[in-house]
Structures are given as structure tokens and as C-alpha cells.
Amino acid sequence: MTTHPLSPEDAPAVAAMRQAASAHKGEKLGPEARPMFDAMLAATPASADVRVEAATVGGIAGFWLRVPTARPGARMLYLHGGGYVLGSAKGLANFAGQIAARVGADTFVPDYRLAPEHPFPAAIGDAIAAYRGLVAVGAERIVVVGDSAGGGLTLSLLSTITADKTKETVQPVGAAVMSPWTDLALTGDSFETRAEADPIFTRGVLQGFADMYLQGQDATNPKASPLYAELNSLPPIRIDVGDDEVLLTDSSRYADRARAAGVEVTLSVWEGMPHVFQSSIGRFLAAEQSVDAIGDFLRQRLIDASPSISTPSEV
């Protein structure tokens, strides 16, 4: 685990964020909050030269993010957050585009179905369909990225895809998740130890999301909560999380279990940072540092997985 201290440059912005967020901490959010949530995330600056195209992949509508120097055969699948209730591909396009540009891979962001209209397992079913759709249209190397609930969805997807390699023609070569929600049973001790420190979430807010998504189904089902999944044979994973989050132990416990299963895991904990702080590029220096590191990690995974090209020896 690597811990990144809060920088002096970020301290004033973090204090201002906490002040602004304090009046709304603990407010439960439902479908009525979707426009507000999308508008908040759409405020992330767009990356220059990333082209956004509406598309359908694997039967799932969403958006392609086309980068000017895309690696042939390489694709990224980005799964957005929002507690399985909020969020959209369009709302996340700017943020996902920032990562896509750094990775150098054309990226598909699916509009997976949301609760409560479409409860579990709709989201994971759509994520699997989108992944297999990428394979069907020629992807040879795939990395998967997600934030918050999308981070949990990413990790559930990894376990599902790698569970039976005989069914999948293309295995994911790496994944990066930001503040992943890995345990919908909410058993992590950071719900107590970070209850005051977290500027955004409370147990009650996340319980509300879990109730809308699960609708009485088992919170420890591995496809809902990847903390309880089989983790052997997964590709390398990078996890970034804020030290003040109630979801901190969702990251640290998953990392511990994955390492014990032989998975290569990089865990970066950022002091003072809120949930999915990476979307605040241009506001927090740590956001740019984290997104740069995620881009480096995923780009290297795609390079390492590229087929070697032999050239004739010179005579």
C-alpha cells in the first residue's frame, strides 16, 4: 500500500469542498437526483481531441470515446458510478475521456440499466454484455475501469469473466478502480472509523442505494459484492481511494483478499481526499496525479499484453 499525504497545494481546496458538502452530507438520493448527478460529473474538463460517439456494443447503448492515437486492438471499458441508481455514460464522458486519452485506447462507456427500475443483476448483466460486445467487434486486449459502484461492477466483471476461461476468447489484461464499492453488506469498519471524516457519505446513504439495487436479494452475492467472489486468476488491478472515505476498507479488504489469492494489486490511499476525487481534475492536484498514475498503469498493461512482433535479422 502506498499512502499519499495531502499536499499544501490541495489543502485549501479540500477545506472549501468540505465546507460546501457539509450541508448535504447524509441526504439520501434516488432517481430524482439523476440530472443533478450528471451535471456535477459533466463539469469535469473534457480532454482535448477525444471524440464522443453514440453507439451500441453488445446490445448495450452508450458512447465511444475515440482518442487520436488509439492503439490497434486495444480497448477500454469504463463503468460509471452512482450507487447503481445514478449516473450515465453521457455524464461520465468527460471524466472517462481524461483516462482514455492517457491510456491511448478507444473506450466504450455503457449505459447499464439502473435501479430501482432494473434491480440486481441487471447492471452486471449489461456490463458482461458490453465486454463481450467489445470482443465481438475485434478487441484483442481489454482493460476495465470503474469508479464507486462502477468500481465494484468492474471487479465483479473480472471475477465473472475469469471464472471459466474456456468461455471467453479475450481475457481482461488489467483493471483500475477508484473508491470501489465492494461490499454491499456494509460490513467494513471504516463506516465507524471514517464516519466523521467522510465529507459526503454515511452508512444510511449507501444502505439506501443497496436497498434499491438489491431489493431483498443477498448482499453477499459475489456478482453484487466482489469482496466475496473467487479472486484467483484475476489480472493486475490498481485501486485508488481516499483515506477519509467510509468505503476505505472496501478497498483495503479487497486488496488483501486479492493478494492472498495471488493477484498483483496496487493500492494507493490518498490522505484528505473525498470519494472519487479524480473527477475533480483542475481542482485538486491529487486528482491529476492519480489519473496520470492510472493512465500509466493501464497503458503499461496494454503494452505488456501486446503480441510481440519479430523482425528479420539484418545480414
Rank of each mutant, 00 (worst) to 15 (best):
G62C: 10
H118C: 04
F201L: 14
A130W: 02
P172M: 09
D147G: 14
R113N: 13
D189F: 10
Q171F: 03
V57F: 03
M1R: 11
A39W: 05
N221H: 06
A258R: 03
E230H: 10
G242E: 03
M36F: 15
V276P: 00
G262A: 06
I309W: 10
P235V: 04
A197P: 00
A96H: 03
A15M: 12
D147Q: 09
A115E: 02
S252W: 08
V145A: 14
A130S: 14
I294T: 11
T202M: 15
S310L: 11
I309D: 06
P5V: 12
A293R: 10
G174W: 00
L77R: 02
I294H: 01
M273C: 03
S308Q: 08
Y112E: 02
T169F: 08
V137Q: 14
R34L: 14
S47E: 15
A74W: 02
S88L: 08
E53I: 14
L134Y: 05
I237L: 10
A122C: 09
F277C: 06
I294G: 02
R66E: 12
V205A: 08
A21C: 13
V103C: 10
G174V: 00
D147E: 15
V144I: 15
A96I: 00
D296R: 13
M17L: 15
F37T: 00
A20D: 05
D189L: 10
V135G: 04
L114S: 01
P235L: 11
E140Y: 05
R51S: 14
P119H: 13
P5L: 13
A185H: 05
D250Q: 15
R75W: 04
S225P: 03
P226S: 11
A100Y: 02
G26L: 12
T56R: 11
I142L: 07
T154I: 05
E230R: 11
N94V: 06
V173L: 08
L298I: 10
D250P: 06
P31V: 14
G30R: 05
D126E: 07
S252T: 15
